[in-house]
Design a protein around this nucleic acid. Structure first.
Lengths: 136, 136, 136, 136
DNA sequence: GTGGTCTAGACCACC
DNA sequence: GTGGTCTAGACCACC
């Protein structure tokens, strides 16, 4: 699996990594029992300080997404799917709520906002970034 | 006009204030030529250190939203409406894009996301926070 | 005579006024014995706080350019021409020195600077803002 | 690289520092990718409060001259040379224009001004502060 | 170690 | 009264 990290930008790197792991689990790309790359490995791949990776993994352990396999690395917990789906939903909902709150404070109408939302959605779909629904 | 500031939360206070001014201009609540409360005044009202208010106003000056009237205070620039509307649109679009990017990475479908979006929208409408569209 | 004042800009208004009086004397537009407009008059003309005008006049008095005519206003001192010419020369030289210092710190060559200077000079001449020399 | 700061003088300290960085980039003394001294380091070197240094660096970030390396410091952006050269030219041109405007308002002729300019230039050259042109 | 934010308080010029 | 600058010092997240 590939992480992509933006070292500038307001989300801390360790948080970006933790989120990406959770999203990958929610997506089914990572499944329970699967190992994640070692701290050193990922540190090299991303050219990121190992402490930063370790902090991300630590957080994922606290959030019951990863568990250590004594001496052999970290694995995705078999019971983490529901948890990650929930985390994903919160994350997405929070983004939507932020946008919504700014929109209304700035005098956008519901329709303006819907238009903007659908435009962004189409944009993502046309890039093949998102799975459409068979019903469309 | 009323600002509300959350001293805990990931957006710095000065940034919250700067955004609220821009959103208020975009909304038409603040108009060109209008004075904003003095640094000291707002400092008292919000119980925030004057330096923090001054920093927000400084940023708004950089962003060509406020201009100083020497010795008399700060006013909304007459040409700032378009700029603030643009800033609002960027802010909202960025929030939408963030949510969308998390959603797709986490395996949500377009319809899941639409459902979530419409739910949040209805929630805001039912609170009377946003202007509906049939009335326009 | 007409003053023009830029209420924004880094030179304080009272200083702008004081300088313009000195320059006008150096130029011969204002001559010894001539009255300057009253504080109230100029305050109205420029839409500037009377205290600001008064401060400019006060400074000009300290600099021996103006003197009060008991109860009748302020006049240009008859001995102020040399003083004003000297002030003008300092002012101009200081501007040149500033530009020069920035230019050299920024790696401009003497010729770059000469080119820039001549270009600005031509620009001013073509606008008829400056008196050329018969020798050109 | 050496900064020199004049705490008295009409240009604020943070602005002096920001300008000197830009001029150093324009000059080629600082190049893209190079780190600038840390806030604390420069604070000690110049005996200036760290907040003041931070303000200068903040401004340079706004002006797209510096970029932060999280937790490691600030670097000159690789694309900042053109920007800094432009900033230098504006700064110099503005100084020249100011001098010129004062000169003409005060009745100097173009030749008077040229004489003054060349004198200052020779003065700087004789001090070895500026690169002459025959050698290039 | 790094920069970013915030407070508290002084002092200043300007109007 | 106004905003702008600067200091001193605390605290924080990040690496």
């Amino acid at each position: 699996m590939f992480f992509s990290v933006d070292p500038n930008g307001d989300v801390p790197i360790y948080e970006q990594i933790a989120r990406q792991v959770k999203l990958a689990v929610a997506d089914g790309v990572l499944v329970g029992g699967q190992m994640v790359p070692s701290v050193r490995q990922l540190s090299r791949d991303l050219a990121i300080n190992p402490n930063t990776i370790a902090k991300a993994y630590q957080q994922l352990q606290n959030d019951l997404v990863l568990e250590p396999l004594r001496g052999r690395g970290m694995v995705i917990r078999r019971d983490s799917l529901a948890r990650c789906t929930k985390a994903r939903n919160s994350l997405v909902a929070e983004g939507v709520r932020r946008a919504l709150s700014d929109a209304l404070a700035g005098g956008m109408t519901a329709d303006d906002l819907r238009g903007l939302f659908e435009a962004e959605l189409r944009h993502a779909e046309s890039n093949g970034q998102i799975v459409g629904d068979e019903s469309r």
